[in-house]
């Protein structure tokens, strides 16, 4: 399958001089079209930092990141912003929505940046995504008037508005109950089936077990990879046990 992006020998440190701490220490990885990947590791292992580096939200000290054939380290701020808006989608642990906008406006916000009199098409796509993620009818609600699970779906709808090549999700189920978390994972699986690569950062073994490939991180390095033939539909409990054991062995 065609690669969407790859990173080579990525190094990233925080702090200066003696207080400098390497958060990413020579990480290399590649993700293909439609692949459903998770990055696992304990707190401070560099999972989120890696995701921000791959998406161009944060720079790297050394190494390369290629997205759809272009080296993003040479891109300008504007090119990076345009890339994020049109080719990438993001979902975070906390619903990152603007309080002053209603649900529909939050979803269409990035797409409206390039709007040239196509409100109708944009709104129609937003409504379609809302329907698909089970939040139809909430368009005019404020962000404090819906549940956490619903807010996370709003975030997913917004991320999918531009038909991205990759969807980055940082602990998307971290603040949800188990039922809501499962519903969100089902949506991600569907998206991946449709050809969008999904990169999920999590420390939850049960969530990671539902993806096709798991990268385990520790002290800024990918210490182990686990590949499954397909996304989990059956035998989830066995996979979960396997993930927990690997985690114990390599990450703690």
């Amino acid at each position: 399958m065609k690669s969407v992006f790859f990173g080579e020998n990525i190094v990233k440190s925080f702090g200066d001089g003696d207080k400098s701490r390497k958060v990413l220490d020579g990480v290399s990885l590649a993700v293909s079209e439609g692949e459903f990947v998770s990055i696992m590791g304990p707190s401070g292992s560099g999972k989120s930092t890696l995701m921000f580096a791959l998406s161009g939200m944060d720079g790297v000290d050394s190494g390369r990141v290629h997205f759809e054939g272009r080296d993003i380290s040479g891109m300008t701020e504007n090119e990076l912003a345009d890339m994020r808006r049109t080719r990438m989608g993001f979902v975070f642990q906390q619903p990152t929505l603007l309080k002053n906008l209603n649900i529909l406006d939050n979803i269409i916000l990035p797409s409206m940046r390039d709007n040239r009199g196509h409100n109708g098409k944009i709104v129609a796509r937003a409504r379609m995504l809302m329907e698909r993620t089970g939040i139809a009818g909430l368009e005019e609600r404020g962000v404090t008037e819906v549940s956490g699970g619903q807010l996370q779906r709003v975030g997913i709808c917004r991320a999918l508005m531009s038909r991205p090549a990759v969807l980055f999700a940082d602990e998307p189920t971290g603040s949800l109950n188990s039922q809501s978390a499962q519903e969100i994972m089902d949506i991600f699986a569907e998206i991946s089936d449709e050809g969008t690569a999904v990169v999920l950062v999590t420390h939850d073994a049960r969530v990671a077990a539902q993806t096709q490939r798991i990268m385990f991180m520790r002290d800024g390095k990918i210490v182990r990879e686990m590949q499954f033939a397909e996304a989990a539909s059956e035998g989830l409990e066995d996979r979960f046990q396997e993930v927990v054991a690997t985690m114990r062995e390599h990450c703690i």
Binding site: N100, D105, N119, V123
Partner: peptide, 27 residues
């Protein structure tokens, strides 16, 4: 603070202003 999601000035219905200008005015 009370969020203003109920505000009747919606981005989805804006046809007049450029999006950034609309967001500024709306704020």
């Amino acid at each position: 603070e009370k969020p203003n999601g109920k505000n009747r000035i919606w981005l989805s219905k804006n046809r007049l202003l450029e999006t950034n200008i609309f967001l500024g005015v709306r704020d």
